[in-house]
Write a protein that binds this DNA or RNA. Structure first.
Length: 281
DNA sequence: ATATTAGATGAAACAGCGGT
DNA sequence: ACCGCTGTTTCATCTAATAT
């Protein structure tokens, strides 16, 4: 899987692109592009990588990604199909200076925040989802107004969180390749122990150089990153099956319960069994 | 029996330094 | 500007004991 700058075809008659994507037909790698991207997950679940951020996504979730923010929505292996609704638009899709007029103040702020990637709450997501569906069936000015309505809704929403931390933006392709390799390796091997030496070898660096590099690029240290991946996997196992906590612990790459509990609580703020209870019906 | 907490200990993150 | 080495600090993991 190669990382690259994605080129998006802009149809002559419209200033932005909106489309429905169904995997396996459309699987994007770790990439970035100059357009803003609004993603709505229609179905399927998996893991999102946005800048230095990692978390699980599932149906109905809505994210706004700023220009040049590297991202990758990777569906789970078990999932046969994933579907999403995506809108791509450039900052100047309304003309160069349109954003500067006072009425656009809030939108401008929204764009600024989206440079780190924004994740919206369920209520906003549901409202916007309906508007996105409408947009797909519109043409001409109606379509444009739909997009404006969506941006308005987003800019007024108070239920959102930042995905990435600042300044992980605009890296070269080579850099992304290297990070991609590291991500790939961790995803394939998190069920076993991953030593700093190992991953440093994958990245062709000395352990100390690797630590420095990783921290620099992702603003978090390597073990923290691996833990996020492990805990997110554990969460799904806990909801999905009736496995014992100790089994899930093993399965997620933790080799003793003590540490599992500690790390789990740190990320989720609940003990594994509490988490299971909360998400079971 | 299984899950959770407390405390000890060893690995790795980090900053400083000098070399290329 | 980047790398590897070194000493210090921080933090994950382990043992053992406690709680459900």
């Amino acid at each position: 899987m190669k990382s690259h700058i994605q080129k998006l075809p802009l149809p002559e008659q419209s200033s932005f692109v909106a489309d429905r994507y169904i995997t396996p037909y459309f699987e994007t790698p770790w990439h970035y592009h100059p357009e803003y991207e609004l993603v709505l997950i229609i179905h399927g679940k998996g893991r999102r990588f946005v800048g230095d951020h990692v978390s699980d996504y599932c149906e109905g979730e809505l994210d706004l990604l700023g220009p040049s923010l590297p991202h990758w929505y990777r569906k789970d292996e078990g999932e046969k199909q994933g579907g999403s609704l995506v809108i791509h638009f450039r900052e100047e899709f309304l003309g160069k200076d349109f954003l500067q007029i006072p009425e656009m103040q809030k939108i401008l702020l929204l764009f600024e925040k989206s440079k780190m990637g924004l994740h919206f709450g369920a209520k906003t997501a549901a409202n916007v989802a309906a508007k996105m569906e409408t947009l797909l069936s519109c043409t001409g000015i109606d379509r444009l107004m739909c997009l404006l309505a969506i941006l308005k809704e987003l800019s007024e929403s108070t239920e959102y969180s930042m995905l990435s931390s600042p300044e992980v933006i605009g890296r070269s392709n080579r850099e992304n390749d290297r990070l991609q390799k590291i991500f790939d390796y961790v995803l394939a091997n998190f069920k076993q122990e991953i030593q700093l030496q190992e991953i440093a070898r994958i990245a062709m660096m000395s352990p100390s150089s690797f630590s420095r590099y990783f921290k620099n690029r992702t603003k978090k240290n390597f073990s923290h990153f691996v833990n996020q991946i492990r805990v997110s996997h554990a969460c799904r196992q806990l909801i999905k099956g009736n496995f014992s906590i100790s089994y899930v612990c093993q399965e997620s790459g933790f080799n003793n319960m003590t540490n599992f509990n500690k790390q789990f609580r740190k990320v989720v703020k609940l003990s594994p069994s509490q988490f299971r209870q909360k998400h079971r019906v």
